[in-house]
Design a protein around this nucleic acid. Structure first.
Length: 499
RNA sequence: GCCCCCAUCGUCUAGAGGCCUAGGACGCCACCCUUUCAAGGUGGAGAUCAGGGGUUCGAAUCCCCUUGGGGGCACCA
């Protein structure tokens, strides 16, 4: 029996991308479902674009999502875990060098001295002739002497892998049989740069072979590259893994999801207040389904049901509305203490941004939970929702202080009367139940619609027309502050009468 | 240009020859609930299953073609 070993191989050349997170998730789910091993390997051979900051963002993002791996580095710059290390490609250079030497010795690869200019000229000529770009093979048949001459001239040599004529076929776990003629591969391809650093197509195969990866689950954008990988596996004398190409996540215009057209960084979603449960749930259902109508599922529920058979073949448009809905569903399911803990950082951020005057305590937030929980599509909305509670000097726009059916005089009279009622209430205890009846009675006595009176009070004490329930809000504010805000609003109406 | 992949409501999807006059969810609309906003409830609009040929007693499901879309063709990953 062969052990199932899958991996995610991110490149620290950008922040954790939605697509990478999804691929990581599918691999993790497959490993958990089958009892296999999930590996994380850093593909950092593009030294020019790789940074530690990105590495940190990627690893922390995956951790944040609750995705765990069995082998590989846990933290940026941290130590590897696992028997197949190192798990950073820049620390595996000697292995690529050894593999290169072997291919060279068997003449399966050869040094290429072509300059960028020559290559560009070739490409241009091909383009002009409406031919597909392809390496012309200028250095493919160089004699030992010719190579020696060029080497003596100090010309840098890249290493190219020889692509032999034929058809490469494989059984994709999601798409079925795929066959590609090697004549469409673009000729002998480079596996090692002129500066000696190895390229992706090469390192990925050397490592997948060395790490005994059994299933390569990755994005469909790699489908056309798979023959190259298979050729390399064969040249290296290693059995090829099972390939499974996931459908792409798309922009609204159905092109491959990109930073340009969509929000792709997981960190941005985290910053907005999407929670891991929702993101995992959403991402898992993008391109995969249980085959049933279940849809609110946690990681373990999904892992228990996960299979490659139900993976969709067509690309899936990223639908933020649906993500938000799922986020709301999960926020409603969080335990009180958990929700409070997750909300606090957002309130601290509101404070730091100067939108509120202090950061509330956990207890402050906890008592508000019943009135805010189902009004939060994302955690970041908390400031807008109840930030008025922690503002010292609330400035209310007089334009919204007067309810639609009322005029300024009525609004003023309403607020004055309401202030009196509220002042007369709760000298001992200030509770929602004690506030509502007298205020309703007031509206009744004056012939006002209760809703209009409540709206005037609402705006006076919160500065907003959409808020949590009024009486709970008044209680949360406290009697003194509620009265002070009513006074301020009454003053405000006296000052400038809005039209 | 060449090669490869794909194709069910606007979106995510169920569907593996008869259970489909195509189901669910998001979004949208209406109503209910209601002090606003949400949440929740009920109902509705929304897909001739891209089009055309086959195969079959019978096709969204199998085959072929067309069309459309996407991806890949780097000394990026």
């Amino acid at each position: 029996m062969t052990d199932i070993r899958v991996r995610i191989a991110p490149s620290p050349t950008g922040p954790l991308h939605i697509g990478t997170a999804r691929t990581a998730l599918f691999n993790a789910l497959y490993a958990r479902h089958t009892g296999g091993t999930f590996i994380l390997r850093l593909e950092d051979t593009d030294v020019a674009r790789s940074t530690v900051a990105y590495e940190t963002d990627i690893l922390e993002g995956l951790h944040w999502l609750g995705i765990t791996w069995d082998e590989g580095p846990d933290a940026a710059g941290g130590e590897d875990r696992g028997p197949y290390g190192p798990y950073r490609q820049m620390q595996r250079l000697e292995r690529y060098a050894a593999a290169t030497a072997e291919l060279l010795a068997r003449d399966l690869a050869y040094p290429c001295f072509c300059t960028p200019d020559e290559l560009n000229a070739d490409r241009k000529a091909q383009e002009a002739a409406h031919l597909p770009p392809k390496y012309v093979g200028r250095c493919a048949a160089l004699t030992a002497e010719e190579r020696a001459v060029r080497q003596a001239e100090g010309r840098p040599a890249a290493i190219r892998f020889r692509v032999q004529p034929g058809v490469v076929g494989f059984e994709d776990a999601i798409r079925g049989r795929v066959e590609i003629d090697t004549s469409n591969l673009g000729g002998d391809f480079v596996i090692v740069r002129g500066d000696g650093t190895p390229l992706y197509h090469f390192t990925v195969v050397v490592d997948d072979a060395a790490m005994e990866i059994s299933h390569v689950i990755r994005g469909e954008d790699h489908l056309s590259n798979t023959p190259k990988h298979i050729l390399l596996f064969r040249a290296l004398g290693h059995a090829e893994p099972v390939f499974a190409h996931l459908p792409l996540i798309l922009n609204a215009d159905r092109t491959k999801m990109s930073k340009r057209k969509s929000q792709t960084a997981i960190s941005d979603y985290i910053a907005e207040g999407f929670i891991r449960e929702a993101l995992v749930n959403y991402l898992a259902l993008l391109g995969w389904s249980t085959g049933s109508e279940e849809e609110i599922l946690g990681f373990d529920d999904i892992a228990a049901r996960f299979d490659l058979d139900h993976v969709q073949k067509g690309g899936a448009v990223f639908d933020r509305e649906r993500l938000e809905w799922l986020n709301g569903q999960w926020i409603r399911r969080l335990e009180d203490g958990d929700l409070v803990a997750r909300l606090l950082p957002f309130l601290e951020a509101e404070h730091a941004a100067g939108r509120i005057d202090r950061t509330p305590t956990a207890d402050d937030v906890r008592v508000l939970l019943p009135m805010i929980r189902e009004r939060l599509p994302i955690l970041g909305a908390v400031g807008d929702l109840v930030g008025f509670l922690w503002i010292d000097r609330l400035v209310v726009d007089p334009a919204i202080l007067v309810p639609k059916r009322w005029d300024v005089a009525t609004a003023q009279a309403g607020l004055v009367a309401a202030r009196e009622v509220i002042a007369g209430t709760g000298a001992v205890s200030f509770e929602a139940d004690e506030l509502e009846p007298p205020l309703r009675a007031l509206a009744e006595a004056r012939g006002w619609k209760a809703g209009d009176l409540f709206m005037a009070i609402r705006v006076a004490v919160t500065g907003r027309t959409a808020t949590p329930p009024l009486f709970d809000t008044l209680v949360a504010l406290g009697r003194e502050r509620a009265l002070a805000r009513l006074d301020a609003a009454i003053e405000r109406l006296k000052e400038g009468a809005p039209r």
